[in-house]
Design a binder for these strands. Structure first.
Lengths: 328, 328
DNA sequence: CCGTCGATTGTTATCGCTAACATGGATGGA
DNA sequence: TCCATCCATGTTAGCGATAACAATCGACGG
């Protein structure tokens, strides 16, 4: 930086001003400084800036280290959005969504003086860790606890789930079974709620819930049970991978989809269009969620403080071939 | 830090020494400093440390922002491994693997004074960007160009592909068709090479190559062609998603898997065990690859300079139900 | 024609840490 | 007993940027 200043014939402070777009700099000097910068190939040292300002141009993200499609898709979308705003993303992924590891991950971010935090906190315990974040650190949670007052972004699980269930009912099915995600996930609860509401609106009683985790394996197990019950004609799975497992179990028992049983998923993973049969599902807009998160975060960073804002992203039903009228 | 020093009754430099595990500190003072640290809840400022040492405790990773399973799995594995060694991971993901965006991503990492770089560079153009990395920055590439002299980690694509093809031949098939990944990917080329070698060893001529990208959609298109040719009895797909698309196309044409056509994939994505039918595939060990990468990187960081090292991770064939004897 | 003000630029201190050198006391061999 | 040596610790000087304040200059109103 000193070199740049010397070459441009100004003080290092003026260089700093140019770099940060301060108003009171002559166009002429600005140009000279820029010329010097390109000539020397100068790049500012972010560590020094972070030290001087007490804040880096890094956004810290905490997420679960899994190959779950939702979090992974959100993460890459976030990264894209951040770069577009001149920020860099640092990721801390935790194996378990318990309070302790998340607190530690947040701590590591704080040590780096991140400009803001995005925490993907889809279960209660993850949210508990948020209490330790100092008030002056911008924070957005994705899929977090709606009862909290932190800025929150989430897909409208309830609406998506309602649409999926209604789609099955409208196809003529008397009722719809639901294979749900783990009960400590907010997503699961909301999807259950949407399913229940759709059934209630249609005046039918909800069949017993089939709890599972998000994996195809657990879907398969649930599917084995469902396949045995010949009065089951419609199943709404809490995500596409569950639906995949369910469809395999049904197939193995000789129950055809959609002729005998209709199935709907959630997430619209890219492969679901090529399942056998191609899966009707609900597509959350992860890009929109990421963009909204960054919006809320940047608003806080630039200190337009409005706490408790939330953005709910509406999902969309994608109709494919796994739904048909009930048999008979 | 000054506060800690005061409370412990020592100089700030001694605190620094304790923090960095320097040898010449009395156990007694060390304990007093640690006590002061816990009492004050002190956490060192990483930005300051990075400024003073010229190097941060951050490992920069460059990868493609996609939901491709391989890179995503590698990334989370890397993150885990890094944390275990006291490092943090900063991710720059690029939409395209062209030289320019990757160069920029590397530049952003360099601005942050990362301790080392891991670049997932599965195509030629990505490798070209590596020339701009200064010599004193530790660098490891994953799936990179084998002709380069940088430290390199990769899964043994060729061996995996050879095993897959051989598995099909041993089941009795006269020949094996291959639906490959994009031709500019090293992975694709190696997988093609392994397939060719297995066929050559069996003394059969290789059928024409069916090129595709990595998506299920392109697999489906290739599958539509294959399904039309009744003499095709065995297909090796360059990844599981391609295999999924192929199997859907075969199914739609009434060709059963594995009775009429046998199919093998590559990657062992978690869902492949629940495809219809469950897919025989090759499982690369992403955790091992990540661990190896970090090993090589840390070796460079601690300046045991050995350039040009490479680690080739052997994959494993996972046998499921998508392979059977040829019909008739 | 002078004082005041705003625009532009320079000077100095500081962020929190580590590196390099300085210091002072205990140790041990001659 | 004395001096060289080593160990434990303290002191000082940066790392490369920004912040706060100071200085210079021209313009403008009275």
């Amino acid at each position: 930086m000193t070199d740049v200043a010397r070459l441009a014939g100004v003080s290092h402070q003026t260089v700093s001003r140019v770099l940060n777009g301060h108003p009171n700099v002559t166009t002429q000097t600005r140009l000279r400084v820029h010329a010097a910068i390109t000539e020397l190939g100068y790049r500012p040292n972010r560590a020094a800036r972070a030290l001087a300002t007490g804040r880096s141009q890094v956004i810290g993200v905490v997420t679960q280290s899994s190959t779950l499609y939702g979090p992974a898709a959100t993460l890459t979308a976030l990264q894209q959005a951040a770069v577009a705003h001149g920020y860099t993303v640092s990721v801390e992924s935790v194996r378990d969504l318990d309070k302790k590891p998340i607190t530690e991950a947040i701590g590591r971010h704080l040590d780096q003086r991140v400009a803001g935090l995005v925490v993907i906190a889809p279960v209660e315990s993850a949210n508990a860790a948020l209490d330790n974040v100092p008030d002056d650190v911008p924070l957005v949670t994705i899929d977090g606890d709606r009862r909290r007052t932190t800025e929150l972004v989430t897909v409208d699980q309830e609406a998506g789930s309602h649409a999926a269930t209604r789609h099955l009912l409208e196809a003529g099915h008397r009722t719809v079974w639901h294979v749900s995600g783990p009960e400590d996930w907010f997503d699961s609860r909301d999807r259950i709620a949407g399913w229940r509401r759709a059934l209630a609106e249609a005046g039918v009683e909800a069949p017993p819930l089939m709890p599972a985790d998000w994996s195809a394996a657990s879907g398969y197990r649930a599917g084995q049970v469902l396949a045995r019950m010949t009065d089951v004609t419609a199943v709404f799975a809490a995500n596409d991978h569950l639906a995949l497992g369910i469809m395999l179990a049904l197939h193995e028992r000789g129950r055809r989809v959609p002729e005998d049983v209709s199935v709907v998923g959630f997430d619209d993973v890219p492969e679901s269009a090529f399942y056998i049969p191609p899966l009707t599902t609900v597509r959350p807009d992860f890009d929109a969620a990421a963009a909204a998160s960054l919006d809320l975060l940047l608003a806080q960073i630039y200190s337009e403080k409005q706490r408790g804002q939330r953005r709910i992203i509406p999902p969309r039903l994608v109709v494919r071939r796994s739904v048909g009228p009930p048999p008979g």
